[in-house]
Amino acid sequence: MHSSTGILRTLGLILAGSIALLSSPVHSGTAVTPGSRAAGMESCVAPTAEIRRNHMDYLKHDRNRVVHEGVRDVKHSLAGCVECHAEKDGNGGYHPINADGQFCSGCHEHLAVNLTCFQCHSKEPDRKHSDAASLSGIRNAGQRGRLGLLIKLNEAPALSSEEMAQLHALSREE
């Protein structure tokens, strides 16, 4: 008896929840810096809420695969974060991503979480053309590896913007 009511309740809740979701207003709260490549994209490599909560674990997991196993086409790469989220400075370069008000530091400072990645990692994407020579012949492979992104600019994202917004809103509510 207990279990059957449980199932019924759950089903009811799912129904009610879906209705509530569909009728709730779309939130567009975003921390993405305007002028970065990410600003023009539908979502990160995973739903924003998930990335916000788990990016440190994902990055740690994939860094071990990159460094120790040499698997470079990982889904979550810090270089990928920087590549997408660094803001252009208008002179052909980028603002350091850990500078005041930039994507990484904005949130980390707000939450008072030490951001140590950039003691060692580059704070800006490489300027494509300056190192093209040294990477000649492997440019294709290299870029794919370095980009670390699944959703490409010229491809249709797998989730519609509406769906993304809904997921986003749900996670914010929680």
Partner: peptide, 25 residues
Amino acid sequence: RREFIGRTVLAAGAASVAPGILLTV
């Protein structure tokens, strides 16, 4: 319950992304 709802929706979302992931990988 909320978590459950959240998970369900996320799973649905993941299912729709999954083919893309598989393809790329």
